[in-house]
């Protein structure tokens, strides 16, 4: 059975259709990259996966059950910004998940439990290359380091699904490449199922196992919200040729212009 099943999923706000007739199956361990023009419902889809938005019609199943309608620990997320807590040091940010499960009321751990959490967090931070920054606050870290910290914080909880909402959108190209390596590395090690939104088509082609393009098949220029976006391309990554990239790029660009 597929880990995630999307059955005839629709999302509408009033008479504005954002997504229509979405159907897909995603197996455990797949790495799905989602690209598409702004306004094509990529983030809406991610929010439905996360549980902060509900589908208007259709079903979103995790292991055959409807996915929880609020965020919980089955799904981890890294946003473009604000993913880490500014009032905690790097180490405390990574220890947080363990502390929360250690004590329902205080959300803190003590004694041996605390020491174990600290060691675990230290190891995790080392694996994302932040062993020099354990006691620094997020504002003292660069953008790339903050995103590494966010990954460490999320992955120490071992979520079934990792959602990435343009996590590298604000980073320099060089740092971005490092982050790609890191994400691929962590994905393989933890056997995660990943959904990653990106603006960068090339990033989508290079990363992961599967590429989804969200685009509007039917587009009414007078009323862009009349029809919703669908998954217009669902490609395995690695064996698509240059022509495909170009034709996707072309159709995404023309949708973007129509929506702007």
């Amino acid at each position: 059975m597929a880990a995630i099943e999307i059955k005839n999923l629709w999302k509408e706000y009033g008479d504005q259709v954002v997504l229509e007739r979405l159907n897909a199956k995603v197996e455990e361990g797949e790495f799905v990259t989602i690209v598409g023009a702004s306004g094509c419902g990529k983030t809406t889809f991610l929010k439905m996966m996360l549980g902060t938005e509900q589908a208007s019609r259709g079903q979103l199943l995790l292991d055959g059950e409807p996915i929880a309608a609020e965020p919980d620990e089955t799904r981890g997320i890294v946003f473009q910004r604000y993913s880490v807590l500014p009032h905690l040091s790097a180490l405390r940010n990574v220890m947080l998940a363990g502390e929360l499960s250690a004590n329902r009321w205080l959300g803190l751990a003590f004694g041996a439990r605390r020491r174990a959490l600290r060691d675990e967090a230290r190891e995790m931070l080392e694996s994302v290359g932040l062993s020099q920054a354990l006691d620094k606050y997020p504002h003292e870290l660069s953008g790339g380091m903050q995103q590494r910290l966010a990954l460490a914080q999320t992955l120490i909880k071992r979520p079934r699904i990792l959602l990435l909402d343009e996590p590298f959108g604000a980073l320099d190209p060089g740092i971005r490449r490092d982050m790609h390596k890191l994400v691929l590395d962590l994905w393989q090690k933890q056997n995660l199922t990943v959904f990653m939104i990106t603006h960068d088509l090339a990033e989508g082609f290079y990363l992961g196992t599967r590429l989804w393009v969200f685009d509007k098949e039917r587009l009414d220029p007078q009323d862009p919200g009349r029809y919703g976006a669908r998954v217009t391309y669902d490609l395995p990554v690695g064996n698509s040729d240059k022509g495909t990239l170009q034709s996707i790029s072309h159709s995404v660009d023309s949708t973007a212009r129509a929506l702007a």
Partner: peptide, 20 residues
């Protein structure tokens, strides 16, 4: 984002108040 983050790390409402 941070409130959502806390929930994905397993926090209940009280823990979100206390730790965030």
């Amino acid at each position: 984002e941070q409130v959502i983050k806390m929930q994905t790390l397993g926090a209940n409402t009280w823990q979100i108040v206390l730790r965030l």
